[in-house]
Simulated scan of single mutants.
Amino acid sequence: MVLGQIKQDINVIFERDPAAKTIVEVILCYPGLHALIAHRLAHCLYKRNMVLIPRLISQTSRFFTGIEIHPGAKIGQGLFIDHGMGVVIGETAEVGDNVTIYQGVTLGGTGKEKGKRHPTVGNNVFIGSGAKILGSIKIGDNVKIGAGSVVTKPVPSNTTVVGVPGKVVSRHGVPIKELHVVTKSVCNKEIRAEEMPDPVQEMLQILMERINYLEKKLGEKES
């Protein structure tokens, strides 16, 4: 069964990575595959109530690949970890079928709670580089999570999530329009999430304008 999973893991790389050219290259040069092979073995031993040996396998794999998958994590078929450096998957995390994970992704907890404390990820999910999915939350099927997003709340199926904190910006590929936003120059205008004003950037702009004004006044006094 484990050998069958490994064979499928290799096929998935050819399906999703156009850079993959030969089986030898994939077997020798893809750390995501190496981490998955180690995890398949460690998880098999973990289910037999072994503790130390599976953890040793996991930590050895982490040393060589930069990818840490706890032996207790449940990984479905067709997982593709691209690049992989810095990926962390916690003990009670569950990953469905045909999931793609990029470098720097964390499926982690939010504290020292017991029991189920890591995310459950559905099928056909794409998780961009640097994304953090934290806590015992459920990510639905066919979800896309943007790079760098921080997700701490459940995500419904067929949606796209971006931002910190993560917010749903599209459903079934259709952008979600935000509430009406009233500003000095815009009234009752519907704008998309990516068009929302950035309060930090606006404040920096105001401060820069104030500094320029004060420098101008100071220059006038000195002259």
Rank of each mutant, 00 (worst) to 15 (best):
G135F: 01
I137T: 07
V87T: 07
G109N: 05
T92K: 15
G108N: 11
G96D: 08
T106L: 13
G122W: 01
N98I: 05
N124K: 09
E91K: 08
G104I: 09
K153Y: 03
T120I: 13
T100W: 14
N98M: 04
K116I: 00
V125D: 10
G96E: 10
Q103G: 14
V95F: 07
K138N: 09
I127T: 07
K144D: 14
I137V: 04
G109K: 04
I139W: 11
G109Q: 05
N123F: 08
D97R: 13
S149H: 08
T110N: 03
V105D: 04
T106H: 07
K116M: 03
V161G: 02
E113V: 08
S157D: 14
Q103C: 12
G128A: 12
G90K: 11
G111D: 01
A147I: 11
S129I: 09
G122K: 05
D141R: 05
G130Y: 01
V105K: 08
I127A: 03
K138S: 10
G86N: 11
Y102K: 09
I139P: 01
K116V: 00
G128V: 03
G140V: 14
L134I: 03
I101G: 02
G108Q: 08
V161T: 04
V125F: 05
V88A: 11
A93W: 14
E113C: 07
K112M: 06
V105Q: 05
N123T: 12
I145T: 05
I137S: 01
V150Y: 06
G109V: 07
P154Y: 04
G90P: 10
S149I: 06
T160R: 11
S136Q: 03
K144S: 11
A131N: 06
G130E: 02
A93M: 13
Y102L: 15
K112E: 06
